[in-house]
Design a protein around this nucleic acid. Structure first.
Length: 433
DNA sequence: CAGCAGGGGGCGC
DNA sequence: CGCCCCCTGCTGC
């Protein structure tokens, strides 16, 4: 029988596959879910969403219907546009000023390659279990914790009840939960992994562009339902694309929770059979349903923005590799646009990604998270660690980690009565098991 | 008191 | 100019 084995290879399979996928998306063919963001509706394919995001994968797994409408609160539609492009095409052009927001959204949605490590299934996946770091997730600064909006103060989001039935909302993984407050209380392990494990695979390609609009390569195939807040179910009736103007999304001026029929969704979080409640989808008139009436019910998800103000959401969990040589080219040479692609994770890309977070305005070094200004790039990089939670300096005597070597030395001297590290090791201790 | 974050000075490229 | 180290002030326990 061996002689009869033939290897049939489709040489252009990938290209063809992606092209078809692109067309399917454009025509909204075979879409089986809808993402609603700021009143816009994006017909999507569960397959693609699940492939690119564990977050969506979990949603769909716990969703009993075939064509759910997932309402993402506090997610900017332009971010969703970009992320969909990213997921469907593998890359997306994003305005420099929007990168921080985009990454945060990606992180909240656990988009692989952007916020969650992208593992090559063909290379990894064997004997990699011990790759999980045992080190604790980076801790947030205390005063940042207090400054960030506590979860309890958020509007009680119905989120995805099916997920919350297994694990109550936990804030223990500090970075992600404090900042993003993922509505789907995923298991802590999964969140933990997304933080501690290898850094996000962010490929950032610089490219020159003058017109910000050119930075978006998306095809606007989204439904624009206008203001769902005020629409009371009449979304889908106004088809407008004017809301794509980034200027419409000033900091902190995000539209609030969108589709919230009756406030908190009433279904019992402990009983998926009652999820969703009957009649819930009635808020979406059948004729206006993005899926052509295929939407079985609505789901409100709250990926955890705190109003879109990056400076407030200072806790974007962009865990970047600490050993990366930190760049900071002169700000004057900083191109206006970045192209974020889904492949590759080399350090230069991380540099650029971090550089984005360290976006410089003019001659100063301004933190992309909080807008704080620093006189020197080194100060800024050090400051950035406070946002990323990166603690590259590990105590050789205990599990303590510090963002600064001096702090580690203080710890060693105070706690362990040992000589400081400065003369012992000048390299950040990374990935120490 | 421990930990965190920022400023300043020294040193090397 | 950038990096590294030391020092200092602040905050929370």
């Amino acid at each position: 029988m061996e002689d009869g084995l033939l290897s049939l290879k489709w040489n252009n399979h990938k290209i063809t596959f992606f092209e078809i996928l692109r067309v399917l998306r454009e025509k909204a063919n075979y879409t089986d879910a809808t993402i609603a963001v700021e009143g816009k509706f994006y017909p999507v394919h569960k397959l693609v969403m699940s492939t690119c995001s564990e977050y969506f994968s979990e949603i769909f797994e716990r969703t009993p219907c075939k064509s759910p409408v997932i309402v993402l609160k506090d997610v900017r539609s332009q971010d969703m546009d970009a992320l969909l492009d990213y997921m469907y095409l593998g890359e997306v052009n994003v305005n420099q000023n929007d990168l921080a927001s985009l990454l945060k959204t990606a992180e909240c949605l656990r988009i692989k390659g952007l916020a969650v490590p992208d593992e090559d299934p063909t290379k990894f996946r064997k004997g990699q279990s011990d790759d999980r770091r045992e080190s604790p997730p980076p801790k947030r600064r205390r005063h940042e914790d207090s400054s960030s909006q506590p979860l309890s103060q958020r509007p009680v989001s119905p989120t995805i009840s099916a997920s919350s039935k297994t694990t109550p909302p936990s804030r223990t993984p500090p970075l992600q939960h404090q900042t993003s407050s993922l509505p789907v209380s995923q298991s802590q392990d999964s969140v933990h992994d997304s933080i501690v494990d290898p850094p996000p695979m962010v490929k950032v390609e610089m490219e020159e562009a003058d017109d910000p609009d050119d930075g978006y390569s998306r095809r606007d195939n989204s439904y624009d339902g206008g203001s769902v807040n005020e629409g009371d179910g009449d979304f889908g009736t106004e088809l407008s694309k004017s809301e794509h103007d980034p200027d419409n999304y000033g900091s902190g001026s995000f539209p609030g929770p969108s589709i919230q029929p009756g406030g908190d969704l009433p279904w019992d979080e402990g009983d998926s059979s009652s999820f969703p409640p009957e009649g819930f989808s009635g808020d979406l008139p059948a004729g206006q349903q993005p899926q052509g009436g295929g939407a079985d019910w609505l789901m409100c998800a709250w990926p955890g923005r705190d109003g879109g103000n990056v400076s407030q959401s200072s806790s974007a969990t962009l865990s970047l590799p600490s050993q990366m040589p930190l760049p900071l080219a002169p700000s004057a040479t900083r191109p206006a646009h970045l192209s974020v692609a889904a492949s590759g994770c080399g350090q230069p890309q991380h540099q650029a990604a971090l550089d984005m977070i360290q976006r410089n305005t003019s001659s100063d070094h301004v933190c992309g998270f909080c807008g704080k200004n620093f006189s020197a790039p080194a100060f800024l990089r050090r400051h950035i660690r406070a946002h990323t939670g990166e603690k590259p300096f590990k105590c050789p005597h205990c599990d303590f980690r510090a963002t600064q070597k001096g702090n580690l030395n203080s710890h060693i001297i105070n706690r362990h009565n040992s000589p400081a590290l400065s003369m012992l090791n000048t390299q950040p201790l990374l990935h120490i098991d």
